[in-house]
């Protein structure tokens, strides 16, 4: 589904990614793990067009993503969330949701301005309601991001990504900053999305979260892919243990 082939990224003299190659299979949850600075977010940014100057190739359903802009990649069917939230603080949670719809569906501006397509917008409102209920943030819909708990904002970002009905969802540290109850709810939500057929690639540090949810795990260290497989295979990999715990000599 999503195929990365020898992807490398250099920032000046620093090699952030070196020849990373792996596939993300459809309808599965793939976790991308690695210590801080391993290049996980750089990889996300390369896939989603925020880092255009990578070498190698990224294909999604046989469409080459090299050189495409973030909004073009969104239209191909890749939606993402961010480690540090990117929400519009001036808009309510519900209005933030509309952005995902407008960006994806581009309803005619003239008709929308004069409210000539009321049926369409009624349907959109219903879909947004459904998504707000699904992600458990309905009761905050008219609040602005500055006044709701962090966990709600995390779910809002995911809901906004999902409203466009993406073919693959990229989640950048979805559990970071959440309390144990919120993590539990989030794991339940991600699991449910997966059973509905969503393909998910997520960066995550919380290993219990990764072990519960992921079908496959890819581990990066210093920008290189050091292991991939199921969680059980990965956790016994000497390279992964070394990356997280360091050398015995050290």
């Amino acid at each position: 589904m999503l195929r990365l082939n020898n992807v490398s990224v250099n920032f000046g003299g620093v090699k952030a990614l070196t020849d990373v190659t792996f596939d993300v299979p459809a309808h599965k949850i793939t976790a991308l793990i690695g210590p801080n600075g391993a290049g996980k977010t750089t990889l996300f940014n390369s896939i989603t067009g925020f880092i255009p100057h990578f070498t190698g190739e990224i294909h999604f359903h046989n469409v080459k993503l090299n050189g495409k802009l973030p909004h073009e990649i969104f239209h191909i069917g890749i939606s993402r969330t961010f480690q540090n939230l990117n929400l519009i603080n001036e808009l309510t949670l519900r209005e933030n949701m509309f952005l995902g719809v407008i960006g994806k569906e581009k309803p005619p501006i003239f008709k929308s301005f004069f409210r000539l397509n009321k049926g369409y917008w009624k349907n959109v409102e219903q879909r947004i309601d459904d998504m707000l209920y699904l992600t458990g943030i309905k009761k905050w819909e008219n609040s602005k991001p500055g006044s709701v708990p962090y966990g709600v904002l995390k779910n809002l970002e995911m809901a906004r990504a999902l409203i466009s009905n993406p073919k693959i969802l990229l989640l950048d540290e979805p559990a970071a900053g959440l309390n144990s109850k919120e993590k539990e709810n989030l794991a339940e939500l991600i699991g449910m999305l997966n059973t509905k057929g969503h393909t998910i690639l997520m960066v995550e540090h919380d290993m219990s979260f990764v072990s519960t949810l992921s079908d496959y795990v890819v581990c990066l260290n210093f920008g290189k892919l050091i292991a991939r497989g199921t969680f059980d295979e990965i956790r016994n990999s000497p390279d992964v243990i070394k990356a997280y715990l360091g050398d015995e000599d050290a």
Partner: peptide, 29 residues
Amino acid sequence: FFFKKTKYGKAFRACYEDKIAASVCGINV
């Protein structure tokens, strides 16, 4: 009316407030 009340107007404002958020929502900033 356009900028405050319509969804397109709000999308325009979103571009100013957070270009990254707007572009991941498919808006051509």
